[in-house]
Nucleic acid binder design. Structure first.
Lengths: 204, 204
DNA sequence: CTGGAAGCGGACGCAGGCGTCCGTTAGCGT
DNA sequence: ACGCTAACGGACGCCTGCGTCCGCTTCCAG
């Protein structure tokens, strides 16, 4: 890790910063982002003041913590978009994002929040636009049901949040199965029933 | 309403009890069950002490509040089970429970909690057993995919929790669409892909 | 009408999180 | 080696929710 963004930190400060990030990362992943600042500080073995000095606003900590996840997320999407088979790419994205979400309880909360930070909102828009393109190609290939809209993908991702199961392996297994079901639901097939009007869950 | 369970209350006490229940009901429906006791008391226009006297434990309040919903829930399930067409009954149950959940943010949390109260756990078991029977009949009729297990239904219901969208109409619309997708996923069709191993999300 | 008990709710003490201040410690440049 | 200063974290005051106590009010039976 060992970040070096602004003007260089003293070595102990840098160490503490890293420990804070690691603590926050694991706490958010396990418990979602209702974790208190002090809990993060405690787990990191630093005082509250240190935490607040490095990350004066909660949002700053969130962004720093989820920077990696954001990168992973983008990787997944780009890989999916690069797939020569758009349907395969599309389903891969659903699967991998679902599992990522299940493994990081907090991430999807932060990322799909109704009032996200500007940073998250921008990344989200960009990714959704990419995914929209991928989806249209999958539709053109006749594999994705024609009445799919990109909001359905958001819906599926949001739905993953409901799987707030304590044990992490069970949570991941549940996410995997839910993703598989979602993929089956989205596949174009003669038996697709007409859907009720699509919702708009998040802006982009 | 005007309950009359234990030894009769004084008239003003009964009124307050009813107002508390109504306040709690609407607050839980709108905001889920992280609502504070005091907030309930405030909305009901009573002091905290009054609330605590009537419902010494949070759980008591929850059970009283969700008694109606539990009844509705059971009604939905029984109606579905009574349907001569098991697949139609099954899909009705999914639809209606999804909408019920979306309209009552707190209910599914209380009902599908990992550590539910004894009361909820019993009702849940009973309902799930009934639904399991319905599902088997729908499978026997060749309409429900053969690799469906009852836990998949729990999964779908849990997933509905993720749709924590602020506006209630939007939430209901989202729930409806998600339910429709789930039904499409669960329908037996030549294109059903094999599923990953099923999870066990709740005990029953 | 009236006595007494059921009921009420303001107020209390406790606990925990918040964000900040400041006296002390320790890294690092010279 | 040394001193400057960044950095640390314990401790503080504030706030909010919790569950309970107790003096006042109100219902209702006789």
């Amino acid at each position: 890790m060992t970040e070096t963004l602004p003007h260089k930190l003293r070595s102990d400060a840098q160490t503490n910063r890293d420990r804070i990030l690691e603590a926050a990362r694991s706490l958010y992943a396990e418990q979602g982002l209702e974790v208190t600042m002090r809990e993060v500080a405690r787990r990191a073995g630093v005082g509250p003041a240190t935490l607040y000095r490095r990350f004066p606003a909660r949002q700053a900590l969130l962004e720093a913590v989820f920077d990696d996840e954001l990168r992973t997320c983008r990787g997944v999407v780009e890989e999916g978009c690069a797939d020569p088979d758009p349907w395969h790419g599309f389903t891969s994205v659903i699967e991998e994002l679902s599992v990522l979400n299940a493994a990081n309880k907090g991430f999807v909360d932060a990322f799909l929040a109704e009032r996200p930070s500007e940073t998250f909102a921008e990344h989200r828009s960009a990714l959704l636009v990419k995914l929209d393109g991928l989806a249209r190609r999958a539709q053109a290939a006749g594999r994705l049901r024609p009445d799919f809209v990109i909001d359905d993908l958001v819906l599926v991702l949001l739905a993953g949040r409901g799987l707030a199961i304590t044990s992490k392996p069970a949570r991941v297994a549940a996410a995997r199965r839910l993703a598989a079901l979602a993929i089956d639901a989205l596949r174009a097939s003669g038996t697709n029933a007409p859907l009720p009007p699509p919702p708009r869950a998040v802006e982009f």
